[in-house]
Write a protein that binds this DNA or RNA. Structure first.
Length: 100
DNA sequence: TGAATGACAACCC
DNA sequence: CGGGTTGCCATTC
């Protein structure tokens, strides 16, 4: 467990319903702008052990990676329009408040 | 300790 | 615009 991992988890937990974040964005906020893959690995490995809203984490193209029906339905339920596994980032990507 | 992996991202053709 | 390849970096074996 590295500070990066803990930070990534913390960031994911801050994603509000109806919003999504990309791996690269999360990785960047976590301190590793190139660590998008680690974010993916963290989700893959820790999501079950943590109560992370991993379904709000998508690829930079605004698409669901797993193409999991549960994830898609969860997002739609929160208000995110998921069209053919794609999401309108400009409309649903979450921009964290630097003021926090 | 060293090598391989991976829910990605960016670049090139 | 679409498809394929390379780079990145922490985690895992």
């Amino acid at each position: 467990m590295s500070p990066f991992t803990a930070k990534v988890i913390g960031i994911i937990r801050t994603i509000p319903p109806g919003k999504v974040m990309t791996y690269g964005q999360i990785a960047s906020l976590a301190g590793s702008p190139r660590g998008a893959r680690q974010v993916a690995r963290i989700l893959h490995s820790m999501s079950k052990k943590h109560k992370l809203p991993w379904h709000r984490v998508i690829s930079s193209k605004g698409e669901i990676s797993l193409k999991d029906d549960e994830q898609k339905m969860a997002l739609q339920f929160e208000g995110v329009k998921v069209t053919n596994w794609s999401i309108n980032l400009s409309q649903f990507q979450y921009h964290p408040d630097k003021n926090a």
